[in-house]
Design a protein around this nucleic acid. Structure first.
Lengths: 192, 192
DNA sequence: CGATTCTTTGAAAACAGTCAATCTGTGTGG
DNA sequence: CCACACAGATTGACTGTTTTCAAAGAATCG
């Protein structure tokens, strides 16, 4: 499963075989079943984690006890609660698996050592975080400026690899609309 | 005006006087009048910028030609289009002044040299970016899970120093609700 | 003071949410 | 292999919220 990571990073950061070996040597693979938690609200997230196989979601519980999905991660996406990671505070988020999944993980300690040791990796992670910020900004813009239908269309366009893989009511949750509304938007669109 | 920055950073990063002098030596101060642009959509943003005085906003124009405010920045806040900065691509955002303002700036080139030269500064900026990501996540959660009233209450609580300083219709724009709705929410709340 | 910007209010229409029922497909256990 | 439970998707009727449009009142600024 490390090969998924190796393949992913090959065109994104120029790492030597030795560096990859080092990265591999401190990694470990966690297999989780569908519906199993990777992180529960209240626990502290202390890992870097990369999805090699499967699909997971990160979500928060709102006042009304409903789930609000912050993020989906499929193969070759990273996953984790950055807030808890950065602050050491208990996580506000839950992470669980939507499919049987395999997650490549590093402890925070080990990963930070890698970043110090391998400047290329460090630079790559910086670019990753920069892109993450851009994606967040775009999602905020979508949330405050798009209609429900536009949000859905935009989701399809932005995440074509996700929308046919996760339940619709979860996409609705991600977009911040009710599942019924999303269902109606879709049927409207199909009648054209 | 550099003293505003000096004072701001003193308890956030341990910098020597010499380092501060270096940082100051490559900085420049830009004074902008109310309504003046600091960045216009289509231009490339190539600076790091810190608000010493005044208040600016960053916004995007939606399909329907309406402004959607992505961010306010007042004294001791940073401002800039990170996406354009990171990618070198034309900005999607506009930045303009809501009050006469004074902005401490560095060119991207100079600032990156500073980051290399002063590890403490680099570490501080990393923490800053981490916090920025956390704030973005919270805003996304607010956008997809709160009612309009909750969004407003949360804004008041989160940015008490901003809400009585910028026009209400801009807060409405920031929250993604119409100004009329925000006005009604406020009057409801006042009648208690 | 006049012009502009900002805020509020009213009424109607559009929109989205809720509740409840139904329909579908999937998978499990008898 | 069938029956059943379960998760997911859809639909209808209703309710409630938000937007839109229009107008008018404040506040601010030159």
């Amino acid at each position: 499963m490390f090969d998924v990571f190796r393949n992913y990073i090959s065109d994104k950061a120029k790492l030597t075989e030795k560096e990859l070996d080092t990265i591999k040597s401190v990694s470990f693979l966690k297999k989780i079943r569908k519906r199993q938690y990777l992180l529960q609200e209240g626990d502290v997230w202390q890992y870097s984690a990369f999805v090699c196989k499967g699909c997971v979601r990160m979500y928060r519980i709102g006042q009304d006890d409903t789930e609000h999905i912050m993020r989906f991660s499929v193969e070759t996406w990273w996953v984790g609660d950055r807030e808890s990671y950065a602050t050491g505070q208990p996580a506000k988020n839950n992470i669980d698996a939507l499919e049987d999944s395999e997650i490549l993980m590093w402890t925070k300690e080990n990963f930070q050592a890698l970043l110090k040791e391998i400047p290329e990796l460090n630079a790559f992670i910086e670019r990753l975080i920069a892109r993450s910020l851009i994606a967040s900004q775009d999602r905020i813009f979508s949330a405050i400026s798009y209609t429900a239908e536009e949000k859905y269309q935009n989701f399809l366009k932005t995440y074509p690899d996700i929308f046919n893989r996760v339940p619709l009511h979860m996409i609705a949750s991600y977009l911040g609309v009710s599942r019924e509304t999303l269902s109606r938007i879709r049927s409207q669109f199909n009648h054209k």
